[in-house]
Simulated assay, not measured.
Amino acid sequence: MSCVHVQALPELRIDAGQGCADCLTLGEDTWAHLRACLTCGHVACCDSSEHQHASAHHAATGHPVMRSVEPGESWRWCYVDARLV
């Protein structure tokens, strides 16, 4: 099931590259799982990680939808609707 936020997303090529961009900026390289913002492509760590950068990215930018970039996962989460989409 989708939401209006998913329908409005641009086409992006996501590159998880080195990992959580925010943790790496802090000089850290440990996180639980990675998420990618489907509005801008920013890669950040999940809420199970110490710094919860994916949620912080949503709070700072208002970008609504993140998706897992973990191998074998394709789910997306809409922060605005608080549900899988």
Rank of each mutant, 00 (worst) to 15 (best):
M1P: 05
M1T: 00
C3W: 12
C3F: 14
V4K: 10
Q7H: 08
A8W: 14
A8G: 06
L9R: 07
L9H: 09
L9W: 10
P10N: 09
P10E: 12
L12M: 13
R13N: 10
R13P: 07
I14V: 01
I14T: 01
I14M: 07
I14R: 11
D15H: 14
A16Y: 04
A16K: 11
G17Y: 15
G17L: 10
Q18H: 14
Q18F: 14
C20P: 09
A21G: 08
D22H: 13
D22N: 11
C23D: 12
C23I: 05
T25S: 13
T25F: 14
G27F: 15
G27R: 13
G27V: 03
E28K: 15
D29T: 07
D29H: 15
D29A: 14
T30K: 14
T30Y: 15
T30I: 12
T30A: 13
T30N: 15
T30L: 15
T30V: 13
W31T: 00
W31Q: 06
H33F: 15
L34P: 06
L34E: 04
L34M: 09
A36G: 05
A36W: 09
L38M: 08
L38I: 01
T39C: 10
T39W: 13
C40L: 12
G41N: 06
H42T: 02
V43R: 04
V43A: 04
A44T: 00
C45R: 06
C45P: 11
C46K: 03
C46T: 00
C46A: 07
D47W: 10
D47P: 07
S48V: 00
S48Q: 11
S48W: 14
S49E: 07
S49N: 09
E50L: 13
H51G: 02
H51W: 15
H53T: 00
H53G: 02
H53F: 12
A54P: 05
A54C: 10
S55I: 01
S55R: 10
A56E: 09
A56I: 01
A56S: 09
H57T: 00
H57A: 01
A59L: 11
A59K: 13
A59Y: 05
A60S: 12
T61C: 08
G62N: 12
H63P: 06
H63S: 04
V65S: 03
V65M: 04
M66Q: 05
M66C: 02
V69G: 02
E70G: 04
E73W: 09
E73I: 00
E73L: 07
S74F: 13
S74K: 11
R76Y: 04
R76P: 03
R76E: 07
R76T: 00
W77A: 00
W77D: 01
C78Q: 05
C78N: 05
Y79E: 07
V80W: 08
D81Y: 09
D81V: 00
A82G: 03
V85W: 08
